[in-house]
Amino acid sequence: MPETPLIKAHGLTVTRGKRVLLDAVDFEIWSGEALTLIGPNGAGKTTLIRALIGMLPHSGTLTRRHGLRLGYTPQKLPLEQLIPMPVDRFLSLSGERSREKRREMLARCDAAPLQDTQMAALSGGETQRVLMARALMRQPDLLILDEPTQGLDSPGEARFYQLLAEIRAETGVAVFMVSHDIHMVMAQSDRVICLNRHICCSGTPGVVSQDPHYLELFGPRAGIAPYQHHHHEHCNHD
């Protein structure tokens, strides 16, 4: 029996006023895979994520596999939060009633000592680990991570990817991640989608890194050359 994708987007289009933010985007997310979304600023990456989690009106179809459980980590919480919120209470807002289970999940994400800390007092890396614990509380089939390493220093970043690799190995959860970190993407993803309002290219990291559209967007030394905007009317959707 052919496998059903976790999420299938077909002709996904999002407009704001007359501006087209996403133009006829097609892709699937498959069970267990690590799929990474890259693209220049303003390419519509966050728009795509917001459409996926059901926050944006769109045209085209967006089909979730029946019973799909979604875990999501926002880029960051809009802190400085005025709401007093201990980490443990934050995790319980996922619906998990057992403090013991919440502690286990924090431990799984290297954040056990933080259980009674205020959310507003966490560092960037600690916040990401707590957000990850919350996303995992729901035993998701798919994790959607919106630039999880933004604002982390290099050791923090390496630690986060290490944690993500462990969690994937342990649970087999699929990961759909927005990232700026080209090198980490190439090392850790099964597939990469390069977005610039439409999908410019997609495939395994090896294939994408040789694609002319990718090289045009990110430069021959991927991520070092400044991006210059061009319109690709002829861009091939593969």
Binding site: I53, G54, Y72, P74, I83, R134
Partner: peptide, 12 residues
């Protein structure tokens, strides 16, 4: 949840 993060609430 909506106070903390509308995105998180929608995703859940």
């Amino acid at each position: 949840n909506a106070t903390l993060s509308p995105e998180l609430m929608a995703a859940e």
